[in-house]
């Protein structure tokens, strides 16, 4: 594995209980990448994400992850659960919990971790919400808080699972802008599963389409020219 490679999948098949959902995928995610994963419902996008996160062992092939990722330095933004929406916790408590993956078993957060949390809250513009309750925030603000938490956990890779679900168009726009900022200015690699093709293709460097009859992996422009992507060009753009 080279130093600038974060995740390398070689001939990977993923699935549950002997049935494979996804077969023979080759994929390399490098530092500074911006990859959108698209595809129909049930095509295996979430399964692939679980594989990339190291929560699912491949049935065949190999998924190599950079040593830091193996230690838990993954900036993951999962889909929100219903229980989370009315969770009594301050923004600061939520963001700080992103620092838990750093090193040894400690009972308290260190001063360095606290200042890191504050810095990331500042970066995402949620610092003034520090003592507000997470459940009182709007959907867009909640996503920013979770992004700040993800930044505490990781410095090189963000993995997002359908981040704009439940956001209004303005908040979704805002989230894409934030992602573009983190990608360009902070050098974060972004891997995102999404349904929102139009906006995703504008930002993404590469697109992975998972279909029933195989994969497409290439640049956003190539994707729109491909048989899988063509229908979106006609329909949406």
């Amino acid at each position: 594995m080279k130093a600038n490679e974060l995740i390398v999948c070689r001939d990977v098949s993923l699935g549950y209980e002997g049935r494979s959902v996804l077969a023979h995928l080759d994929l390399t995610i490098q530092a500074g990448d911006y990859l959108c994963i698209v595809g129909d419902n049930g095509s295996g996008k979430s399964t692939l994400l679980r594989g990339l996160l190291g929560l699912l062992t491949p049935q065949s092939g190999s998924i190599q992850r950079a040593p830091e990722l193996e230690k838990g330095a993954v900036g993951y933004l999962p889909q929100q659960t219903q229980a989370q929406r009315d969770f009594p916790a301050t923004v600061y408590e939520v963001v700080l919990s992103g620092c838990l993956n750093q090193g040894s078993f400690r009972f308290f957060y260190t001063a360095a971790q606290k200042s890191q949390a504050l810095m990331n809250m500042g970066k995402l513009g949620v610092l003034e919400l520090k003592d507000k309750s997470y459940r009182d925030l709007s959907g867009g603000q909640q996503q920013r808080v979770l992004l700040a938490r993800a930044l505490c956990a990781a410095s090189r890779l963000l993995i997002l699972d359908e981040p704009i679900t439940g956001l209004d168009p303005a908040a979704a726009q805002d989230l894409y802008k934030t992602l573009a900022y983190l990608h360009e200015k902070e050098g974060m690699a972004v891997v995102m599963v999404t349904h929102d093709l139009k906006a995703a293709l504008r930002g993404a460097r590469r697109v992975l389409h998972i279909g029933r009859d195989g994969f497409f992996l290439g640049t956003a422009a190539d994707y729109l020219a491909s048989p899988q992507g063509r229908r979106f060009r006609e329909a949406d753009l």
């Binding site: 838990g72 889909q79 919990s97 992103g98 838990l100 938490r149 956990a153």
Partner: peptide, 21 residues
């Protein structure tokens, strides 16, 4: 002793798992 970890797991199990908890 496990207060912070219990909080993290209660708030977001997926994230906790992904970050190695």
């Amino acid at each position: 002793l496990n207060y912070h970890r219990l909080f993290a797991v209660t708030f977001d199990e997926s994230f906790s798992r992904a970050t190695g908890l």
